[in-house]
Design a protein around this nucleic acid. Structure first.
Lengths: 156, 156
DNA sequence: TATTGTTATACTCTATAACTATA
DNA sequence: TATAGTTATAGAGTATAACAATA
């Protein structure tokens, strides 16, 4: 009753060219690969500043929100509080940011850029802006705008 | 010569609502957040099958490329060989895949789905297809198609 | 000499529990 | 009782070096 299937097939199939068409049709696969590609360029261009993407995000948020607290940074960036501690300590040791007591809540600490931190962040933001056009190399400005609009629709 | 800057400012600024507009204008920031959002949904929907995204990708590639080797999987998915070993071992222990010696290269091993693996992968791919419309909830089918096209332009 | 698959290992990223000081 | 910040620690994920078998 089971003669149709040889246990160890005499001609085992092999693969010359891998067919990835199925995965390439999935949003998750494409979103992840695109994110990794852009972040790779980001990492490379930010390394002269000694900044990882997350360091850049923190400095930029502090620049545009002087006095922001660790808790607010965590909520904005999806970082867990214990994982932000070392990051902020390093930026403080590098004298890029300063802690100042919160004027109305003695539990909280406001974060501020030092003059050196402000200069570095301004330069890094300029690099980030240039990087956009490179990372999205084959996208026209209109396509880039559309892409960002559609990405926001996915996660907001 | 240095009287203009009070050491501890009398009115330290605080932040009510965090201004994230700058980061929201960057492609990398949006691509990463969108990818994480989609992957979160993916992880949740695939958990009944006991599959992480990478397990799904491997099974799907084996399904569409019977006899694919570990080396080819690594190249297709951007996984390093040492990190694929445990993954493939687990899928084999669960009797979802089978190793068969490569017919022409005794160093290599071809990977194949077992009947149970084929059934699971087929069901998981159906779930993945349904998931697309949910993960991209507020996107129209046309927008989803545009988004995938633009994402490919970024990383290809 | 180069490649496939593998082990061992280290490093980063992310996650959880628990503490302190303030509210 | 709840929150801000912190410590310690555990678990993923990702990286490099080196090896045996085969090409």
């Amino acid at each position: 009753m089971s003669a149709a299937q040889p246990a160890s097939s005499p001609d085992v199939p092999t693969v010359e060219q891998v067919d990835t068409r199925y995965l390439e049709g999935l949003l998750g696969y494409n979103a992840r690969r695109a994110a990794l590609a852009v972040i790779d360029v980001f990492v490379e261009r930010m390394s002269p500043y000694g900044l990882r993407p997350v360091d850049f995000s923190v400095l930029s948020l502090i620049r545009h929100n002087p006095g922001i607290t660790s808790r607010q940074l965590c909520a904005s960036l999806g970082i867990l509080p214990p994982n932000l501690v070392g990051l902020v300590n390093n930026l403080e040791k590098r004298e890029l940011i300063q802690r100042q007591p919160h004027p109305r809540d003695r539990r909280a600490v406001g974060l501020h850029l030092t003059p050196a931190g402000a200069a570095l962040t301004e330069a890094a933001e300029k690099t980030a802006a240039e990087l956009e056009s490179d990372a999205a190399g084959r996208l026209s400005p209109a396509e880039l705008k559309t892409l960002i609009r559609l990405l926001k629709k996915v996660y907001l």
